[in-house]
Write a protein that binds this DNA or RNA. Structure first.
Lengths: 236, 236
DNA sequence: TAATACAACTTGTATAGACAACAGAATAAT
DNA sequence: ATTATTCTGTTGTCTATACAAGTTGTATTA
C-alpha cells in the first residue's frame, strides 16, 4: 500500500503543527526548504501545502510564506480540525468530559444511515463526550469509530485528550476530509440538560462522516451544539 | 490587470455548467481535450478543475472523469440534501421570490460586523428573497452587494433569476469562495411566517461573506433556513 | 457462455525548470 | 531624515514530460 509523497509531507507537517513544533502564527519553512527536506519538487510540496490550507491548518500569502492558522473568535468547527486543536488554537480554555465509553457497540443510530454506504463495519468503538469552553458546555457528541486495526485503543487513554492526534500518532491514521449535514433542531431533554439550556431550545445538529488515510475507514459523529455564545464558522 | 489562465478556464467551465452546456450528472471533456481547447498544459487545466471541485460544481473520479454536480445553479453555493433527488428528478428547480429590492441602502445589519474588515463600502444594493423547493419555502435571505461598478444593475432583472450568474455574465464578477458563521436560532415572527413554520421554531442562521474575482468586492448574505425537510450539507 | 486478458481511455502523482508577482529589508538618491 | 530604488527571498503561474493507477469496453481464451 503506497502512500503518495505529498500525503506523507502533509501528514508530517500536520504532526509538527499539532505538536507545536511549528507555533501558531509562525511561519512554516519555505517551499524550497521543504523541497530539500523531503527530496521533492516544489509542485509536490505545494500540493501538500494546499491540502493543509483546505483542512484549515495554514494560510498562505504571496511573497511571504505559510502561516500556521491563527485563532478565530468563533470556533472553526466546520473545518476539519478536531475539537482539541481548535480550542487550543483559539486560546480558550476547553475541556472534554467523557460521559460514556469507549465501549464496543454496533452503530444503531438511524440518523447516520444516509451517510453510510452499503456494507458497514459490524462493530464500532463508541464515545459520548461533552465539550466545554470556559466551563460552559458547548457541544455534546456521539462518536463511532470502526473497531478494526486499533489494538489497545479502548484500554489506553487518548493522547493529550485528542482523538485525532491519537489516531495520527499511535495508528498512523490521518483524518483528511469530512462531509456533514447541518440542521437546526429543538434540544431534547438529555441534550438540553447537558448543555444547560432549556428543553426545546434551538441547537445545531451536525452529522459528520470523516474520511481518513485508510481506505474504507470512516469516523462518524453526531454533534449537538449550543450556538448562543459561540458560532460555528467555516471557510471555503 | 491580468487574469491567470486557470482562472479563465475555471470561469469558462463554470459558465458552461451553469448555462447547461454541460448537463448535470454528465461528464466534462477530459483533461487532454480541455488542454487542446484552451491551449494549456494539464497542470493548468487541473488547477482549474480542482477549483471547481472546491466550489462544488464538479466531482472527479480516477480513471473516469469529471462529473457535473447536481443542484448548484438554483441555490447558489448551498447544496441541499434530503429531497434533492426528488427535486432533480422532477426537474423542478427551486424558485426564488424577490420580496423586496433591489434597492440602494446602507448596511445597517449589525450582525455582519464581525465579518466586515476595515473600511466598508458606503452603499449597498439590497435584496430580500425567499427560496422555495417544490413550492415549500426553505430559505429567507437578505443580500448586500457593494453599489460599485454595477451599471444598470437595479434597473435590469437578474439573468434567469440568478444573482451569481448575472454577476458572472454581465459584469465578469466570479464568486469564488465564502466564509460563514452558522447558528441555530429561534425563528422570529417575520421569518416564521415566510417559512410557514411556527414562531420560535429552530431555524438555521447563516451569515455569509462571499469573495469574488474583484479585489475588495464582497457580497454579504444573512440566511434563515428551515431544515425540517432539507439539511444543509457541506464538503471539505 | 463465462471468465480472463488486453487495450484504450481516464485521472493521479511526480519531476525539472522558467518566469512573474509580491513582501520586506537593505541600499541609494533626494 | 525622508523618499525612491534595488535586491533578495518568497509564493503564484505555467510549460513539458513521464509513468502509475483506476475504469471501461473489447477481444481472447478456457
Amino acid at each position: 500500500m503506497k502512500i503518495p509523497l505529498y500525503r506523507q509531507i502533509q501528514a508530517s507537517l500536520k504532526e509538527k503543527i499539532t505538536s507545536g513544533v511549528y507555533e501558531e502564527g509562525g511561519l512554516l519553512p519555505s517551499e524550497n526548504e521543504l523541497c530539500a527536506e523531503f527530496n521533492a519538487t516544489r509542485m509536490t510540496v505545494r500540493q501538500a501545502l494546499n491540502e493543509l490550507v483546505r483542512e484549515g491548518y495554514i494560510t498562505r500569502q504571496h511573497g511571504k510564506g505559510s502561516t500556521v492558522s491563527a485563532s478565530r473568535k468563533s470556533l472553526g468547527l466546520l473545518s476539519l480540525k478536531g475539537w482539541t486543536e481548535v480550542v487550543v488554537a483559539s486560546d480558550r480554555h476547553g475541556k472534554t468530559l467523557v460521559l460514556e465509553g469507549p465501549i464496543v457497540k454496533k452503530l444503531e443510530d438511524s440518523a447516520f444511515k444516509p451517510l453510510i454506504d452499503e456494507e458497514s463495519h459490524e462493530e464500532f468503538i463508541f464515545f459520548k463526550r461533552l465539550r466545554l469552553v470556559e466551563d460552559s458546555p458547548v457541544m455534546y457528541e456521539h462518536t463511532y469509530i470502526p473497531n478494526e486495526n486499533l489494538p489497545n485503543f479502548i484500554k489506553e487513554p487518548l493522547l493529550e485528550g485528542s482523538l485525532f492526534r491519537t489516531l495520527l500518532i499511535k495508528y498512523q491514521i490521518d483524518v483528511q476530509s469530512m462531509t456533514q449535514e447541518v440542521r437546526a433542531v429543538a434540544a431534547d431533554k438529555e441534550t438540553a440538560s447537558l448543555l444547560k439550556i432549556k428543553s426545546k431550545s434551538p441547537v445545531l445538529h451536525l452529522l459528520r462522516k470523516y474520511k481518513t488515510s485508510i481506505d474504507g475507514f470512516f469516523l462518524y459523529s453526531s454533534i449537538y451544539c449550543n450556538t448562543e455564545k459561540f458560532a460555528i464558522s467555516s471557510f471555503n
